[in-house]
Design a binder for these strands. Sequence first.
DNA 1: GCCTTCATCCCGCAAAAGCGTGATTTTTTA
DNA 2: TAAAAAATCACGCTTTTGCGGGATGAAGGC
Lengths: 206, 206
Amino acid sequence: MTRVYIVDDHAVVIEGIYSLLQKEKDIEMAGYATNAANCMQYFINHTTDVILMDISLPDMNGVDLCKIIKKNYPGIMVLALSTFNQGTYIRKMMESGASGYLLKNAGRQEIVEAIHLVMKGKTYFSFDAGQALKSTTDQQNAIPPLTKREKEVLVNIADGLTNIQIAEKLFISTDTVDSHRKNLHAKLNVKNTAMLIRFAVENNLL
Amino acid sequence: MTRVYIVDDHAVVIEGIYSLLQKEKDIEMAGYATNAANCMQYFINHTTDVILMDISLPDMNGVDLCKIIKKNYPGIMVLALSTFNQGTYIRKMMESGASGYLLKNAGRQEIVEAIHLVMKGKTYFSFDAGQALKSTTDQQNAIPPLTKREKEVLVNIADGLTNIQIAEKLFISTDTVDSHRKNLHAKLNVKNTAMLIRFAVENNLL
DNA sequence: GCCTTCATCCCGCAAAAGCGTGATTTTTTA
DNA sequence: TAAAAAATCACGCTTTTGCGGGATGAAGGC
């Protein structure tokens, strides 16, 4: 008998998963929470085998909640649950200790399969999620890693600061800011500020 | 007895709403579809009182599907269903003939209430959705309307083109492009390209 | 017919960004 | 500890933006 706990702020999702999993004789619902605080509260006195966790919660993001859960209760398997199909989210959840990534358009069959797999210590990815993960792993689509300083300069550019203002703020020379800017252009394959900021926002680098 | 039909590509959402509404004695489930094509197919030979419609579908966006439904079957009430809480989406759905906007974190009570209200010919907004709509209606938060030319110039800037290139593309002088640029800065209250593009992407003006 | 908005164009100057090329010093990592 | 990566600074030159003023014609509402 596998106990499943749900963390999701959408009542219909909780209700839907409950309804779908009630039909499974080897799965038992341990309970649910609609936010991270209630979830953490619950596990002080209880436990479960698997948590189905939405990555977007009202009081905390799923990535951080996952880290906390896995740190305090490593035996609990976390299955990320999301409508978003973006490689960055998926990767972050996996790095935080999740055992898999399930898209909300998954059917009963898929959810049950995923739960069984993670209970065996394996990982599960929805097909599309696997594709998304793969595509960001491929060299073509991968975003080259930016250094700390480059990110700092980038967010300041996005805030509308000029090189001079950024230089003053970071206590470096304008030439250095310019160098970081050049590197950003080269790494992200853009040729001016407009393309840089567009790329940054669309790939949420800010 | 009110018949309710669901269009949503998430199995758990359909299952959840079914489960929640089965407890209501004056509501009857008419059926469901996981995409726009199946939905339209269904209504050739059937009908319903209310459609709960997700705004993001795999084959079409909810706005267009809503338009089609209301054009062919004006008697069917459409209630938009979404996780997104953005004024622009809400407004577009309402303009397409929807009778309300329901967020997916709504509980049983709220969903039932919304269905009953729209059946009476009234409109329903989730609290947060109402707020979001209001905030974009307020003069402070409203995005000033951009002219056709301004939008054209904006997308070309976002594509990384310089004033010279845009001028050549649109067969106008660089001074004119510059004028449009000045107007964009004034209207959107930004002071350089970085802020302009950031604002444009974040408020999906592209 | 008048007024407003839109789109167009012009000029000039100052500020900022873009680009090449190079170098030094930390810091990190293998 | 040696090599690699990151952060720093420099200089000169070109291109592009940003900004302050204008001005004109065309379209549409009142």
